[in-house]
Design a protein around this nucleic acid. Structure first.
Lengths: 338, 338
DNA sequence: TTGAAAGCGCTAACAC
DNA sequence: GTGTTAGCGCTTTCAA
């Protein structure tokens, strides 16, 4: 068995409670005793058992982080940041992947909640009703979904989508497509609402296509419809869809940005590395991760009684190489015979 | 407070131990009683507290997963697979990022080890000495580093590197570079050894350059030296370095694969999406993650007494678009007479 | 400032 | 089959 508080007590000739205090309330113990106990503990290689501590304090010092798909490049920076921030606050974090499955998500939360002080839900697919029930068990913070009554961190993709439409309009395009994401995605809805509004204002015809899988496959599959639609610009649900679309378009002889301009969302690594470099809407995922952890910890320490807050993080359009003015003859120059 | 075993006992008119048994040893309890207890538990929304259980059983049903950098596209598929496999076995997993810092890595292991039954170390940067000491505390399984006496899952990048050199040689190249990774990287050392051997066999001059940061920046920074070196092919530590190198080469007017062939390692998403599509050595990360979890669980259940095993997973060269025969005038290669 | 004792939620002998 | 009891490692009153 590992070395416990009792071993340290025996070896340093004090009672267990004194050892306990040296670690959890050092100011309550005589400086001399404390240094001695500390030295003995160090020598024995003692490490407090957080789980045992949690049993009496009710604080596990663990957090749960639940995401739809770890392998989606949108999440790793968020996970990394959240985890780093948590560690800074002396918290460990469980990471779980739901594979976009609401049932699994629920099961995960329920089994996890006894072991954590709070749960970070990233782009949850759960129904409002279930969330409503679960929130009684454990404090939540939600990322990228609007849920009234819950503390939420939103990346304001709507704002970015509006700017993207402006950008496209400014370039001279008149017809553009929006490739939406999964049905239950808040981000997708926000984009749709904002893009619709901005398009109306700039007198742009907006063709909505979706839902699409939020992957390169989704973009690839949409290429035919996009090419046939005659739009000269496309705003995609995320970078992967955009990258897949560009690939699919290229296979059909449609050049990006020569014939069609393409915009993604996320500012992910693949997009930055791609050729042409992807024009995209940055998502401040790392900042969101850090902020979500801090809000969650605040809720935990307030006994979950604190008023739910809503944090809105700005997004920005990063113009790179996948957008350009439309071809003068109205697009589709490649297919135009002389 | 949440509902405990005691609440269930009271509500169903049995003793706590009976409730405990219904969950941890159902066969020991009368079928009738069992269904009644289960029903009551269900109604009350009872969920066993795993941490409390761990206190008596010594089994936390948690695993630790420690990686150098979550945001490095090499890791997410591994994390996802490991986490999924663990869940299948009814285990939760802590994920922690060391930021490539050995001290942090050690600290993480030490604070985590009381809360987990075992730790998965992915590409650890820790010194052998420290690992030797830590392994007494908690069972380890190591991924991608050779550590005698420890159960290890290796992705045989050496094999892939050998095939890569053959591929390059077959294309007609005579001088190639190897961009190595971080000093402490086992993968990098393996590549170096295998590439050196293969190059000698095929009578290829191998220029070793490094260490390089394992990122696009690292590749970008190496472009100057590569361009100046006069090699016509480069094997890179990973896809990111390869992608950065391609970018840096392009900035200097060096075409890939026209002037220089480039090979990466990982078969990561950005590489698959890149233009030209990256020729790369696949790393079976998902399989490694699953296997590592199973080996770890086996060690845990064997009381860590089981003999350390060594699993070697095959890698493959995937030839895509970033490699080609060298330009005839550019190399003293194919046409060099005897 | 320190010790004694109770108890967190649960399991595991051991009795009955 | 089920109840009794002790105890996992730790914190936290309450006394001293």
């Amino acid at each position: 068995m590992a070395v416990t508080i009792r071993d340290v007590a025996r070896a340093s000739g004090v009672h267990v409670s004194t050892v306990s205090r040296t670690f959890s309330a050092p100011h309550l113990v005589n400086a001399e005793t404390r240094t001695r106990v500390l030295a003995v503990a160090e020598g024995l290689g003692y490490r407090p058992n957080r789980a045992a501590r949690a049993l009496t304090t009710g604080r596990t010092h663990n957090l749960g982080l639940i995401v739809a798909d770890i392998a989606n490049p949108f999440f790793p920076p968020l996970i990394k940041a959240a985890q780093a921030q948590a560690r800074e606050r002396d918290y460990h974090v469980f990471v779980a992947d739901t594979d976009e499955d609401p049932l699994l998500e629920q099961e995960l939360i329920e089994t996890l909640c006894k072991q954590v002080d709070g749960v970070l839900l990233c782009s949850p697919r759960l129904s409002n009703r279930v969330i409503e029930r679960l929130r009684a068990q454990v404090p939540f913070v939600v990322v990228n979904r609007r849920l009234k009554g819950l503390t939420t961190v939103l990346m304001d993709v709507g704002q970015g989508a509006g700017v993207a439409v402006e950008h496209v309009a400014g370039l001279g395009h008149r017809r553009m497509a929006l490739l939406t994401g999964p049905q239950s995605s808040w981000t997708s809805e926000e984009m749709l609402a904002a893009a619709t509004l901005a398009a109306r204002e700039r007198d742009i015809e907006l063709v909505v296509m979706g839902p699409n899988e939020p992957t390169e496959q989704g973009g690839l599959a949409a290429a035919r419809a996009v090419a046939a639609s005659g739009v000269t610009a496309v705003l995609c649900y995320n970078d992967l869809v955009a990258l897949g679309l560009i690939e699919g378009l290229r296979e059909r002889g449609v050049d990006v940005p020569g014939d069609v301009s393409v915009i993604g969302v996320d500012d992910s690594l693949p997009g930055r590395l791609n050729r042409p470099k992807l024009t995209t809407i940055t998502m401040p995922t790392a900042a969101a991760g850090r902020m979500a952890v801090d809000l969650l910890l605040a809720a935990v320490n307030a006994g979950d009684a604190g008023t739910p807050t809503l944090a809105r993080l700005e997004t920005h359009l990063v113009v790179r190489e996948s957008t350009a003015a439309p071809a003068r003859d109205g697009g589709r120059s490649i297919l135009t015979p002389t």
